[in-house]
Design a protein around this nucleic acid. Structure first.
Length: 197
DNA sequence: ACCGGGATGTTCT
DNA sequence: GAACATCCCGGTG
């Protein structure tokens, strides 16, 4: 298991997102293989939090690559995003689903409402709850692992033919037209194996 | 299986 | 005051 270097993140999020497939997100003693991602592209992306410029919430997203942007979705769920590109760009990748690799017994009590194992981590709000990622982890350095959170390569390459399709959860926002979601074909933990529309 | 609504806090109009 | 990068539960067929 090798922690991904800073340069892995210092690229366009649309290149990083498919490359993150099959990498391992580690949080303390728990980890999961990344099987679904979405790219968020700053000023050219009306779906990105950074679209309208720097705000207190998006400070980390506008910071240097390789740090974790964590935000609260719908007032309830935490979502986690490795920051990409260059310092000041405001681009990142949302991790939408992982497949448990280690510590699954610790994940079950953290996800008491999950009836089946697949419900442990098959969504962006679910995987943060299962792994234990919360708002206090906003800004964590994924390269130094200063908060026990890293992304590592265990030797599994990304899928040869990842599925690329539309992102999830945008109503009538024109962001719905950008096909910036990728997932591992056939993996059971993908939140929505079909296209978004 | 599929669909509608409620929870709940931050951000922006 | 509305929208929101979600999830869960209870209704119906």
């Amino acid at each position: 298991m090798k922690t991904l270097p800073r340069r892995f993140y210092r690229r366009d999020p649309r290149d990083v997102a498919p490359d993150l497939l099959n990498k391992v997100l580690v949080c303390g003693t728990r980890s999961g293989r990344i099987v679904e991602t979405e790219a968020y592209c700053g000023p050219i992306d009306p779906g990105a939090h950074s679209y309208r410029g720097l705000t207190p919430r998006t400070t980390v997203m506008f910071g240097p690559p390789g740090h974790l942007y964590v935000y609260l979705s719908y007032g309830i769920h935490w979502c986690c995003n490795p920051v990409c590109g260059e310092d000041g760009e405001g681009v990142a990748v949302l991790i939408r689903a992982v497949e448990p690799v280690a510590g699954i017994e610790e994940m079950r009590p953290r996800r008491p409402k999950a009836r089946r194992d697949v419900d442990l981590t098959n969504g962006p709000g679910k995987l943060t709850e299962a792994l234990g990622i919360v708002g206090a982890n906003n800004g964590a350095d994924l390269v130094t692992g200063d908060q026990g959170i890293v992304i590592a390569d265990d030797g599994t390459p990304p899928p040869v033919a990842p599925i690329q399709t539309w992102r999830i959860g945008f109503g009538n926002n024109p962001a719905r037209d950008y096909p910036w979601r990728w997932f591992v074909p056939g993996n059971r933990f993908v939140s929505r194996p079909e296209g978004a529309r």
